[in-house]
Simulated scan of single mutants.
Amino acid sequence: MTTASNVHAEIKTLLEGWCTGVREKNLDAIMAYYDPEIVAYDAIIQLQFRGIDAYRQHWQFCLGMCEGAMLFETHQLVVHGNDDVAFAHWLNKCGGTDEKGEEKSSWMRASAGYRKTADGWKAVHEHFSAPFDMASGKALFELQP
Score class of each variant (00 low, 15 high):
residue 3 T to M: 11
residue 4 A to V: 14
residue 5 S to D: 14
residue 6 N to I: 14
residue 9 A to G: 09
residue 9 A to I: 08
residue 9 A to K: 09
residue 10 E to Q: 15
residue 11 I to G: 03
residue 12 K to G: 11
residue 13 T to Q: 15
residue 14 L to F: 01
residue 14 L to A: 08
residue 14 L to E: 00
residue 16 E to L: 14
residue 16 E to W: 04
residue 20 T to L: 13
residue 22 V to K: 01
residue 23 R to C: 14
residue 24 E to D: 15
residue 25 K to F: 02
residue 28 D to I: 01
residue 30 I to T: 03
residue 34 Y to S: 00
residue 36 P to I: 05
residue 36 P to H: 01
residue 37 E to N: 14
residue 37 E to G: 12
residue 39 V to N: 05
residue 39 V to P: 04
residue 40 A to H: 02
residue 41 Y to Q: 03
residue 42 D to K: 08
residue 44 I to R: 12
residue 48 Q to R: 15
residue 49 F to E: 02
residue 49 F to R: 05
residue 49 F to D: 01
residue 50 R to F: 03
residue 51 G to K: 05
residue 51 G to T: 12
residue 51 G to V: 10
residue 52 I to S: 05
residue 61 F to R: 09
residue 66 C to Q: 07
residue 67 E to N: 13
residue 68 G to D: 03
residue 69 A to L: 14
residue 69 A to H: 11
residue 71 L to E: 01
residue 73 E to Y: 04
residue 73 E to I: 09
residue 74 T to P: 14
residue 77 L to C: 05
residue 77 L to K: 04
residue 78 V to Y: 01
residue 79 V to Y: 00
residue 85 V to L: 12
residue 86 A to E: 01
residue 92 N to F: 03
residue 92 N to R: 07
residue 95 G to W: 03
residue 99 E to K: 10
residue 104 K to Y: 01
residue 105 S to M: 09
residue 105 S to F: 06
residue 105 S to Q: 06
residue 112 A to Q: 10
residue 113 G to T: 10
residue 114 Y to K: 12
residue 114 Y to G: 08
residue 114 Y to H: 12
residue 121 W to K: 04
residue 123 A to G: 06
residue 126 E to K: 08
residue 128 F to P: 06
residue 129 S to T: 04
residue 131 P to F: 01
residue 132 F to H: 13
residue 133 D to N: 14
residue 134 M to Q: 14
residue 139 A to V: 15
residue 139 A to Q: 11
residue 140 L to W: 01
residue 144 Q to I: 15
residue 145 P to F: 04
residue 145 P to T: 04
